[in-house]
Write a protein that binds this DNA or RNA. Structure first.
Lengths: 237, 237
DNA sequence: CGTAAGATTGATCAGAGTCAACGTACGTGG
DNA sequence: CCACGTACGTTGACTCTGATCAATCTTACG
């Protein structure tokens, strides 16, 4: 199963452009786990490799150097919910719980930096600036998850899909002007949005017919930003 | 609107039994904000009072002394999502964001202790044990919100209702043996579970017909615990 | 070039939403 | 103390969104 190849301990020479941080993290030039980088191990995974098993004891957490990860919760009968997608710069599994309640899988081939959770906890116990950075990160995670409650609880299929594209637009560095290259397949999007593959397709087709996006398999061109915003119903009351 | 009556500053003489902590918090006898109690103000609210307005600048956070609170997000067209219910001992709005992204309203008349967020941040900057307690709390919030993603994204109406009853059973001290007195109305439950009022009623009726619960308005008697667990599909893969 | 995995589209079905009527409990005021 | 009114809860009939089942198309890759 775990076909991960473990490479040399972190050499520290990563490509900063790859890890350009996004959105909320823009304010914190020293990234979340930077100060622990020397204690980390670089690990690579192939597409669909299991990075964290659902229910596994929480021993490690990971920072994404490149590639895309999904977190996943499986119900007994096979129903699947994707918790989040992670991209370069994002951190995975550092909410200290006894067990990882979501699994994590590689959406694309990816490179991660692995940290011991105990190391993080020790650092948090002695370095207050570090603890506060963790706290900020954690608060951002809370807000992100709660935002998704609205999407899953109250939005229609097309709204969910429009919101999803807006989120990806904000988080993915657009390939070309207004063009997104989605790393994940329709099934992953469906399980992220609480829909089926077919409904995701139809939702995209709907946005296409309305002239809002052009869809070419995994490549999405956003042609009407205002229309997409409107279609997403993201504005609050 | 705000018919809150502001009383004397915290006298510190609350009923500990009322605030008996639950579930995850059981491990931390010194409660989250105990050390700041002297800087807090006691505030009371009537049923349906607005405690935090959606979009309001984040200046205060609250600890529930008694009563029940709901956090709420409204979309422009009136669709509503309840983020969480809070009971005695729970803490509200201490995830430091610029604004409160959910509003908060009193489900029942309630008594709160109000803290300045700046006070919390200052304390977190100087007291590392406090910062770690905040971190634990925040991590618990992340896990709770993510658990709800599965419920909203992948569970059927009856499963959501069963899960809800199980959650309330765990969080509410049962009135009598196996009996829950729900403080919230059907509409609140519906908006918490991403359903309509009617579907909540039908779901309860369904559980009743299956001999799992007895329903009498706001009072729910759980007659078949195993059946309820099964109906909730809460076991993971 | 052939195969397989993924994406799309169509037809049909079912679960939950909507609309409407009715029941029940509680609080208020006569 | 009772009668009424209101808010909330329940149930039924019907509708509609999104799921399911099935067929076809496209692309990537061996």
């Amino acid at each position: 199963m775990l076909s991960a190849t473990q490479t040399v301990p972190a050499s520290g020479n990563y490509n900063p452009a790859l890890i350009a941080t996004i959105q909320s993290q823009v304010t914190s030039p020293p990234r979340l786990l930077d100060s622990l980088v020397d204690a980390a191990t670089i690990i690579e995974f192939d597409r669909d490799d299991e990075i964290i098993f659902q229910g596994e004891d929480a021993e490690y957490c990971f920072e994404v150097i490149s590639g895309c990860i999904r977190t996943v919760r499986l119900l007994e009968d096979g129903r699947r919910q994707v918790g989040e997608f992670l991209f370069a710069g994002d951190v995975l599994g550092c909410e200290t719980a006894q067990q990882h309640e979501f699994g994590a899988e590689a959406v694309t081939a990816c490179v991660l930096r692995r940290y011991r959770i105990t190391a993080i906890e020790q650092r948090a116990a002695s370095d207050i600036a570090f603890a506060r950075r963790l706290l900020r990160h954690s608060a951002a995670q809370v807000r992100a998850a709660r935002g998704r409650l609205v999407l899953l609880g109250r939005k229609t299929a097309s709204e969910r899909i429009a919101s999803f594209l807006l989120e990806m637009q904000a988080r993915l560095r657009p390939a070309a002007r207004g063009t997104l290259d989605l790393p994940m397949a329709r099934g992953d999007i469906a399980d992220y949005l609480g829909l089926t593959i077919e409904t995701v397709c139809r939702g995209l087709a709907d946005l296409r017919h309305r002239g809002i996006v052009a869809v070419e398999r995994t490549r999405i061109a956003i042609q009407d930003q205002r229309g997409l915003l409107q279609a997403g119903s993201d504005q609050l009351h």
